[in-house]
């Protein structure tokens, strides 16, 4: 239980750093750390496969892509121009209010049961695979369209137009 609080604290801590770091590169690095804490959360939840996928997909692929892009376009640039403090303050207050309202609306003050592991094998590949390829076969297949579309689009957008050179 204490582990959870510790990890949770880390998650929050790193995520705050993500948004407050001056350099985008630092942000990414903190984000990697944050995601790592998430992976730990998954493990704590006995969702091993999820933890692995999270690790691979987010940290291995997505964040590297971020980093890569950042390097590509912003390498020799100064840090981004920052928003004025007033705007920041307003944003933080707004975000804080949002947090408060959402928490209040979830009525967290009520006591709630602990997260009990009813099915220890729940997070295993075998188990998930069954669900994914039975019930969720259709969304699984349909999401291929999503990826295909994204792929085509990414290529389309990111390539330089031959005409645009002119």
């Amino acid at each position: 239980m204490n582990t959870f609080y510790f990890i949770a604290f880390l998650s929050i801590f790193f995520s705050i750093l993500v948004i407050s770091a001056k350099s985008p590169v630092h942000s990414i690095l903190y984000l990697i750390l944050t995601f790592f804490t998430f992976t730990i959360h998954y493990i704590l939840l006995n969702a091993q496969f999820l933890a692995i996928v999270n690790f691979i997909v987010y940290m291995g692929a997505i964040l590297v892509l971020f980093l890569y892009t950042l390097m590509l376009i912003n390498l020799n640039k100064e840090a981004e121009p920052v928003k004025s403090n007033l705007v920041k303050l307003a944003a933080v207050i707004g975000g804080g209010c949002f947090l408060i309202t959402i928490v209040a609306s979830l009525k967290l003050l009520n006591v709630s049961p602990g997260v009990s592991l009813q099915n220890p094998g729940l997070g295993l590949v075998k188990n998930l695979g069954k669900v994914l390829f039975n019930e969720f076969l259709l969304p699984f297949e349909v999401s291929s369209i999503l990826l295909l579309s994204a792929m085509v689009g990414a290529v389309l957008l990111a390539t330089k137009e031959p005409k645009s050179a002119a």
């Binding site: 975000g95 209010c97 949002f98």
Partner: peptide, 20 residues
């Protein structure tokens, strides 16, 4: 975009508060 999102957030807060 920043102000858009800010107003969205305010909207969300308002709706949540109002609903509850």
């Amino acid at each position: 975009v920043g102000s858009y999102i800010f107003m969205m957030i305010i909207g969300i807060i308002a709706i949540l508060v109002y609903s509850f």
